[in-house]
């Protein structure tokens, strides 16, 4: 067995040269490009990571702002609720006042109506009384009544102070004596004498008739008014009845 040492040496050199060639033309550039690509991809990944972080931060910021918004909204809501509450209370108060006012008004109106009703009733009662008085009077002779009442009038006149009587007598216009029923001429003269006796000669008299007096008479001077008739009595009675005003319902 022989070994070709030349071939052996040449092959060794050949393989060494090939190692250098492939290192030069294959492995180094390929490794370089692979490393470059890996670096690029890592850079890309890092960039993506950074971008993701930034996006997450933005999301967190938006979240925080949204929380602020909701807080603000809650505050606004609370304020609105508070104002609504006060408004409601105000409105309730107003409504209560209004209701109270309306109630008092209604009470007033009611009282007024009751008052007017009572007045009407009183007026009716007064008229009824007048009618009843007239009916009663019809049962009596008119002259007697008139005479009696004139007598009373005369007594009143007599009871007047002297000054008043002088004034009556000195009046420019004649003293008006009004009776419910017309006096007969005799009665007139009789009464004129009687009155003149009371007031003096200077006094002048005129006689009138007024059925509204029902019964009795009035004596009217410039400043004096003497009444002795049922009308006046009835009016006085009615006034005295209505005088104590009933307390209004509050």
């Amino acid at each position: 067995m022989q070994i070709d040492w030349w071939t052996f040496g040449l092959q060794t050199i050949n393989v060494l040269v090939l190692i250098w060639l492939l290192q030069r033309f294959l492995f180094r550039p390929v490794k370089a490009i692979i490393d470059a690509r890996r670096d690029a991809s890592e850079k890309l990944l890092a960039d993506a990571e950074a971008a993701r972080n930034a996006a997450q931060e933005a999301v967190a910021a938006i979240e925080a702002r949204r929380k602020d918004f909701s807080k603000e909204g809650e505050a606004i809501l609370a304020a609105a609720q508070a104002t609504a509450l006060t408004e409601r209370a105000n409105m309730l108060e107003q409504a209560r006042q209004e209701a109270a006012r309306i109630e008092t008004e209604a009470h007033k109106i009611l009282a007024r109506e009751r008052e007017t009703q009572r007045h009407e009733l009183e007026a009716q009662a007064g008229e009824l009384a007048v009618v009843m008085a007239r009916r009663l009077l019809d049962l009596l002779p008119a002259d007697t009544v008139t005479a009696a009442l004139l007598e009373a009038l005369a007594q009143d006149l007599a009871a007047l102070p002297a000054e008043a009587r002088r004034e009556l007598a000195a009046a420019e216009r004649p003293v008006v004596v009004t009776t419910a029923t017309a006096l007969s001429a005799d009665a007139q003269t009789a009464w004129q004498e009687r009155l003149t006796q009371l007031l003096g000669k200077d006094a002048r008299f005129t006689f009138g008739e007024d059925p509204g007096l029902i019964a009795g008479a009035t004596l009217q001077g410039p400043h004096t008014l003497l009444r002795r008739n049922w009308r006046a009595d009835l009016d006085r009675l009615g006034r005295s009845l209505t005088m104590p005003v009933p307390p209004s319902h509050e």
């Binding site: 030349w6 071939t7 040449l10 092959q11 060639l21 033309f25 550039p29």
Partner: peptide, 25 residues
């Protein structure tokens, strides 16, 4: 230096490999 066919073939293979690598890289 005697050049055997083996060495010749090896040169050919070396040339082919290096050329292919160079052409691509």
């Amino acid at each position: 230096v005697p050049i055997s066919t083996t060495v010749l073939t090896t040169w050919g293979i070396m040339a082919a490999l290096a050329a292919a690598a160079w052409a691509v890289t």
